[in-house]
Amino acid sequence: MSQQPSIFDILGPIMIGPSSSHTAGASRIGYIARQLLHDEPKKAVITLYNSFAKTHKGHGTDKAIIGGILGFGPDDERIRESHELAKKQGLEWEFQFRGDATKFHSNTARVKLFGKKGGAVEVVGASLGGGRIRIQEIEGFPVDFTAQAHTLVIIADDIPGSIKNISGAIAEHGVNIANMFVSRNETKANMVIELDQAVNAETLQKIESLSWVRFVRHVEPMTEHSSRYEK
């Protein structure tokens, strides 16, 4: 993968306005939270920080995040009516605002989702401009990824050999690991693994079946190109 910018970084993103950071980026944070929940959401508690908190109304940040949670991409015109559509789907939500959270990037959102099957996930993401985002926290673990590559997020008991086992399962199916970040608390480890290709369902099941693995999610890349080329 080349590091050179794409011409579609300049002619794009194709997006719902008005702001690549406050609208397009915000929708992507919601969309990633939805992928990490891996279920139909029934409730969302969203905290907007700093510039997001102060200017969300004028930029439709609240509509964009709910749209993302419903699975809409940043160029999906349903974002405009996302609140009405969410109500129809039985999603309840609540926004909280923290205008002066200096430890967070100026455009940050915390999204806590509760799924219909009983699961829940809490994600913090920052919108960096141009529609690009950075996920900074998942389930209380500090993380750092942009969702521009296929990304695996795994939370597991912190036992010796856990990293070797998981990377082995991925390599077994011929998928290259581009980057791997590990963080720990007292008992658990969080791994964020960026891959050159998607992993197949079999690999995911194999990792999930390990007794000490608590949470496995595949986040698909958030490039514009995939949706742009569908026509």
Binding site: I16, G17, S19, D75, E77
Partner: peptide
């Protein structure tokens, strides 16, 4: 259109679209 949450292509940004 951009200000009203319509669809635009940023070129290079939404503000200059």
């Amino acid at each position: 259109v951009n200000a009203c949450m319509g669809k635009i292509a940023a070129a290079p940004t939404a503000g200059s679209a």
